[in-house]
Every structure is written in structure tokens, then in C-alpha cells.
């Protein structure tokens, strides 16, 4: 297996940050009420992962070992702040839906985890690939959990998709006259949903 293929497989499946490393649970559980929220935070996290991984890789020979962590934190915090401003400037409605969770990306351990465990030891192209794939893997976990909760909770999929993709995207109403299932939408639903997803993934691995 080539190294790129391994990085891809690691990020999307074998070492998925949401389902295997279980890093970044705070945003994972908090925002996944709907598919669109999950996708939005996933994309913002992916951007942060890519930019922070590439930068950390570029400076890996300049930064002495004893101050590497403060420097990583500085880099990540700067990029998250910039991404938040960009979102506020160009996707204001999405910002209103996700706004309070964007600063949470800073606390997402998977970002500093990837910087420390991977990007600080690898050349730029691999660090970029790792950031992209870990980000996509995290986004898939967020969107799947969001989809499960939205479907069970409200009986719809892609509600408020117009916030992100413009008017062309429509909400799919899966069940008409659905009486909402509150538990799925509340925080416990996030834990149950994540537990089921992890169990499902483990079952696939065994068989």
C-alpha cells in the first residue's frame, strides 16, 4: 500500500478521529442535531486541520522541542479565529447556526493531536494529506450522527441546507406529520447515537 493510500484509509476509517480516536467529542456531541450543522462544523474543522498541519510541518525544523506545544496552540488558535471571521463575513446565516461552536474547534484534541503525532514529523505533502483525510473522516462521522439524530428527532434530512448551499438545496421530509422524538435531539441522543455508530463500525471489523 502506498503511503498516501494508508493516510487516506487511516483518516477515513482505520483511525477515524470521531469513531476510533474519539477525539473532539465536545463539538461532535454538541452540534450534531442536524446533517447541515454536522457538515458545517466538519468543513470548518477540516480547514483548520489542513492549515494547521501544513504550517506545523513547514516549521517542524525551526521550532525547538521544548516550545513546540505553545507554538502549535498559537497556530491553531490563530487559524480558528480567522476561519470564524471568514464564516461571519461570507456565510453569516451559517455562522448564526454554528457560531458558538466554532471557538470549540480550538479545544478539539484531534487537531493538536495530528499536529503533534503526525505533522511535526512528516513533510508538507503528507501532512496536508493527513489533515484533509482526518478532516473528511471527522466530517463523515459528524454528518452521519447528525443524520441519524435529525431523522429520528424531526423526521427530516438536510433541514436548513439553504444556509450552506443556497436555495437549490431542499429539505427532505422523510416522515410526514412526524411527532418529534425528543431524546434523539437532546444531548443523551448524541451519546446513544455515537455509541451505536462505534458498535456498528466494530461489528464490521469483526466479521
Amino acid at each position: 500500500m502506498t503511503q498516501y493510500a494508508k493516510i487516506t484509509r487511516d483518516g477515513l476509517w482505520d483511525n477515524n478521529p470521531g469513531l476510533v480516536q474519539l477525539l473532539g467529542l465536545c463539538p461532535l456531541l454538541a452540534v450534531t442535531g442536524t446533517v447541515v450543522n454536522g457538515l458545517g462544523l466538519g468543513i470548518a474543522t477540516t480547514l483548520t486541520l489542513i492549515t494547521s498541519n501544513v504550517t506545523v510541518s513547514l516549521i517542524r525544523n525551526v521550532v525547538p522541542n521544548e516550545i513546540r506545544l505553545p507554538v502549535f496552540v498559537l497556530i491553531i488558535a490563530s487559524f480558528v479565529t480567522i476561519i470564524e471571521m471568514m464564516l461571519k463575513a461570507f456565510y453569516y446565516d451559517l455562522y448564526l447556526a454554528l457560531g458558538i461552536f466554532i471557538p470549540l474547534i480550538v479545544t478539539n484534541c484531534s487537531i493538536i493531536g495530528r499536529a503533534e503525532a503526525f505533522a511535526s514529523k512528516q513533510p508538507m505533502d503528507k501532512a496536508f494529506m493527513d489533515g484533509l483525510m482526518m478532516g473528511i473522516g471527522f466530517t463523515i462521522a459528524l454528518a452521519t450522527l447528525g443524520g441519524m439524530r435529525e431523522l429520528l428527532g424531526y423526521g427530516t434530512l438536510f433541514s436548513q441546507a439553504e444556509l450552506m448551499f443556497g436555495q437549490a438545496w431542499m429539505t427532505i421530509t422523510v416522515f410526514d406529520n412526524y411527532h418529534s422524538f425528543l431524546l434523539a435531539v437532546l444531548p443523551p441522543g448524541a451519546f446513544f447515537g455515537l455509541g451505536l455508530l462505534i458498535a456498528f463500525k466494530n461489528a464490521l471489523k469483526k466479521s
Binding site: 521550532v63 525547538p64 516550545i67 498559537l74 497556530i75 488558535a77 490563530s78 480567522i82
Partner: peptide, 22 residues
């Protein structure tokens, strides 16, 4: 001193980037 100045340079760069985007 060397370590401290490297950290300072990164702080200035990070702050500068944020200020510029703002």
C-alpha cells in the same frame, strides 16, 4: 533567549495574521 525569541516571533506572526483578517 533563542527559544524565547522564536516563541515571540510566532506570537507576533499569529497576532498579525488575526489582525489582518479582522
Amino acid at each position: 533567549l533563542k527559544t524565547a525569541s522564536i516563541l515571540t516571533i510566532f506570537a507576533i506572526l499569529g497576532g498579525g495574521l488575526v489582525a489582518f483578517s479582522y
